[in-house]
Design a protein around this nucleic acid. Structure first.
Lengths: 353, 353
DNA sequence: TAGTTTTGTGTGTACGTACACATTTTTTTA
DNA sequence: TAAAAAAATGTGTACGTACACACAAAACTA
């Protein structure tokens, strides 16, 4: 059914139907009702090709995400966003990615300024510097620019959508996996490895989930839980890490709530004679982690489909702006359990081009 | 860049550019080269809206999959296919699903006939009745109708694409998970539960993978491996199943290579006092299995994203026919490890509308 | 009641592509 | 060398929608 057919059935012109469809007014209530009835009955849906052709709109989406070196976590969301752009550029979705330094608030505000100057039709934001991100969302609200959040959420923002993970549950899962590997009494270390001083909500939630599981399991009788903090790059951090891993008090398992467990794995590899029985569970399928998973030093990794997060974030703008569909307000991606035996089929697990 | 622009640059008419683009001939080699050069340099890409509008093509895709009752495995691929249709119908993808009875060859051939009569532009086929499916693919080849395979592959067919899982690896993974749960000596039972007599390649490969892992692990010293076959609906099948589960010889774990592990779980629930310590690993997130996973009777389920399989199968035809893109010839979906702690975020794990 | 505004309605063009058909140029034939 | 055939090129229309503009009818104003 086309506008032409509707017009014929209603005995009006194309223009009148058009005005009804777009609520441009200037139509008598009588004819409006007549036309609407026909539209309803005929289940009219606009031809998206014709519409796309005539509108020839293109939408500028700006993404603001942390910068990264090769093989680091934030490479993956960026990869997903770029892959989505490849598929969606032909539908008028144009992308600009801006990268900020996670360790520098000024870098973030600078890039945020730049982003606002672009006057984008939509924004993808990774609010890892929470406080500053909130400020930006306020400005976006004022400018009436819709935005999506990836990785972590800002609870009371009116984001178009949030795409991320349930960090608390991720921690619980990590605990469960670690416990399944442990058969004897001993100490479990939670080692927070970070490269900056920022408070990271995701890490905190994972740790809470981890503890929640342990304290509520009947494992707790056999387990001593210790927490360590390691700051990459500080003096003696490597020694401190070794110290944290060392089985002085009979360490049986280690959990790292960030993507940095490869540092622990490396440490264990270097002290393999004394530490080989320690079980490791960590997060994220970055190259370094995968390496140690393959070697059997890391036992499980928990994946949160970061590429998918990026892909879906851009795609949701396509659905919202181009197709004018509703998009889900919140999307938790599955927490994938990765081990040697199922690793191979997760490596290219993005919506492919 | 549009055809018009190309024409202007090449000092020819739109028609000539069109002939070059579509290789309709009747163009001198000179002008052809000139036009091609400009196309190359300008990185011309046809406007898919204009093209879609003028072609106004619609493609009929027929899917031939097993029928199902609510909550059975084959509901999920069908669900995925239908969801894809919902998203893609506006791009001219029309779907007809034909259901056959897995236990009846004649049902399959009948529906295959029906399918050929539809003269579809593409076919999605679940070759669970392998021999008959091969015959159908031959006919499709003759009729030059492209087809995609889901669930299991037909190795030397020239399918447009195969979308499924690595069953052998799935079995290995199951074994790994089961072993991680077992701390003592004992017997592991592999119970094949089927509702028909058909030879099922997937089940066989899973079993092989399972054994492969066990035999090559250092667990084998502590483990006795037994295989059972249960045919649903035959006389005494429930007793036979209980027998297969019963810890007469100290059963510590059970693996079911089909989606039918809920029958085992039910059996164990009924004999909870004697069987509660048996660990269970099975396949597929069907409702009944999920129920027992939640109860903690099933320890792990391995998922193969059946909805995604269906979704991707139809989407690949969209990409191939509408967008005229290449599609990957083979796509193994990840083997998801599902346990109580990460179940919740797998339930709506389909590409959403 | 003529003129003006308001309200309602119809017409025409553009978007970029595909394809049928018309026209021009070149080559071949008698 | 003129006529016919073949090759090369150009023109025009349609697809369905959005929107600017033109026009007509009704409702005001003076």
């Amino acid at each position: 059914m086309t506008i032409k057919e509707i017009a014929k059935l209603a005995n009006v012109s194309l223009g009148t139907v058009d005005r009804v469809l777009h609520k441009r007014g200037k139509v008598s209530k009588e004819t409006e009702k007549k036309v609407l009835d026909i539209i309803e009955k005929g289940n009219y849906k606009p031809n998206i090709y014709a519409r796309g052709l005539v509108l020839n709109r293109s939408y500028k989406i700006a993404a603001l995400v942390p910068n990264y070196n090769n093989g680091e976590y934030w490479e993956m969301p960026s990869k997903g966003i770029k892959m989505a752009e490849k598929n969606l550029s032909q539908f008028g979705i144009n992308l600009s990615i801006l990268y900020f330094d996670q360790n520098s608030v000024s870098s973030f505000t600078e890039k945020a300024e730049e982003l606002l100057k672009l006057k984008p039709d939509g924004v993808i934001l990774a609010p890892v510097i929470n406080f500053e991100a909130v400020k930006l969302t306020k400005k976006l609200d004022e400018a009436k620019i819709p935005f999506s959040l990836i990785d972590s959420n800002i609870p009371n923002s009116n984001a178009l959508s949030f795409i991320g993970q349930d960090a608390f549950q991720s921690g619980k899962l990590a605990a469960k996996l670690l416990c399944s590997e442990i058969n004897s009494k001993g100490t479990i270390s939670i080692i927070s490895i970070k490269n900056n001083e920022n408070h990271n909500k995701t890490l905190q939630q994972r740790i809470e989930g981890f503890k929640d599981y342990i304290y509520n399991s009947n494992f707790i009788a056999n387990i001593t839980l210790i927490e360590h903090n390691i700051h990459l790059g500080t003096a003696n951090w490597e020694e401190n890490l070794t110290q944290a891993c060392a089985p002085t008090n009979n360490t049986v398992g280690i959990f790292v709530p960030s993507s940095m467990i490869h540092h622990v794995a490396k440490c264990i590899e270097s002290n393999f004679d004394t530490m080989s029985t320690i079980k490791l569970v960590g997060n994220d399928l970055i190259a370094n982690n995968v390496k140690y998973l393959k070697k059997g030093i890391i036992n499980y990794l928990i994946g949160q489909r970061p590429e998918n997060q990026g892909y879906l974030a851009l795609e949701s703008f396509y659905k919202y702006l181009v197709l004018e569909k509703q998009v889900p307000q919140k999307k938790y991606l599955p927490l994938d359990i990765i081990t040697q035996e199922n690793l191979m089929y997760y490596n290219d697990d993005v919506v492919s081009s």
